[in-house]
């Protein structure tokens, strides 16, 4: 059993003679009993009639001779190279069509990841190397360690008291070394 909503969606196609036998029968029998859908049919018929009147009342005649003359001249004229290029590229650069942008971005991202995997450090998402250097020097009986982190330009200095060599002279090196 078709609802009024379903029937109303089909009335236009039914008036156009585009429904199959069973569908057309369903619409016809429904319209015989439903006043609301009958009103919908009346409005659509009226709309179609007025639209047809409007289109038919217009002057669609074309002046054939000037039309062909203008067309022949256009065909004979040599087109500039940019007109050919614009015609060729037209479908690709049509302004409202940005559908290509999404796959293009995906391809670029995949490319960046792939590039990064074969050339470490070059990919967009490749991990950045945060190098740090550790130096250990002895000076005046103390063990000194320096950690320089280049990314943040941070330097950490450790000072270790060497109890064994505390009272020894300058220039002596600890046997144990810094405990880090």
């Amino acid at each position: 059993m078709n609802t009024c909503g379903e029937i109303r969606e089909s009335i236009g196609a039914w008036l156009d003679g585009e429904l199959s036998g069973a569908e057309a029968d369903a619409v016809r029998s429904h319209l015989e009993t439903c006043l609301i859908c009958g009103e919908e049919r009346r409005q659509l018929e009226n709309l179609n009639r007025v639209m047809k009147d409007i289109f038919e009342s217009e002057d669609f005649r074309l002046d054939v001779e000037p039309f062909w003359h203008g067309l022949r001249q256009r065909i004979a004229a040599k087109r500039p190279w940019h007109a050919d290029l614009a015609e060729w590229a037209g479908p690709f650069i049509r302004a409202p069509s940005f559908a290509w942008a999404v796959p293009a971005v995906i391809v670029l991202l995949i490319g960046a990841l792939y590039f990064g995997s074969i050339l470490p450090g070059w990919g967009v998402l490749a991990p950045r190397n945060n190098f740090a250097t550790v130096e250990s020097i002895d000076a005046y009986g103390r063990n000194v360690a320096l950690l320089r982190e280049h990314e943040s330009k941070t330097t950490v200095i450790w000072l270790y008291q060497n109890s064994d060599n505390e009272n020894e002279g300058a220039g002596e090196t600890s046997d144990k070394g810094p405990a880090f």
Partner: peptide, 18 residues
């Protein structure tokens, strides 16, 4: 081509004007 144009120019123009 001229014959094709003469066959369809009116029909094409009618649709486009519509």
């Amino acid at each position: 081509f001229e014959e094709l144009v003469s066959r369809y120019q009116q029909k094409v123009f009618t649709v486009i004007l519509g």
